[in-house]
Amino acid sequence: MSLQTFTNEVLPLKDKLYRFALRIVKDSPEAEDIVQEIMIKVWDKREDWSSWSSLEAMCMTMTRNLAIDRTRSKHRKVTDLPEGYDMVADSATPEQAASSKDMMNHIRHIIDQLPEKQKSIIQLRDVEGYTYKEIAELLEIPLSQVKVGVHRARLFLKNELIKSSEYGRS
């Protein structure tokens, strides 16, 4: 019974959890470890599932907490990362691929400069498409803080993008 729920509702979340963990720890194998560990934790807590308002929200919250924990325990340096660690291979020509990859790395670099909470908010809203209410529940913060976070993060991104286009990077 619970195995079925797990297979149908928890396992399909793995990519979403992975993307969320990756945004925080910025290391692919580490993010994968986190997801695997969360899956085990969630499975071990299967008796509590009925008391959780949303299985998905709980998985996301647990993933975030573990990811933050990992970055703290390792004092991970946040800037020195192999470029393109969360890239999807695409694009028609090698030139296009190279310039688009460069641009994507640039954007990721800007997002990485955001405080952790704003980064999580942007990931949840602009990448995953969660509602503000869901984000508030998931991050365990008031709705007003989510709204302020979205606004501040987007403004920062906007200004950085304008700055880079003024430096001839567009």
Binding site: L3, F6, T7, L11, K14, D15, Y18, R19, L22, S28, A31, E32, V35, Q36, M39, I40, W43, D86, M87, V88, D90, S100, M103, M104, H106, I107, R108, I111, Q123, D126, V127, E128, L157, K158, L161, I162, S164, S165, S170
Partner: peptide, 28 residues
């Protein structure tokens, strides 16, 4: 609006990032 174009392209792309490693499903 061109300066903002990469941001939305990034979101679009980031949405499709997938985990490569297989998850070990729990055995009952």
């Amino acid at each position: 609006f061109l300066p903002f174009s990469p941001l939305f392209a990034f979101y679009e792309e980031a949405q499709h990032v997938e985990m490569q490693r297989e998850i070990k499903a729990p055995t009952p």
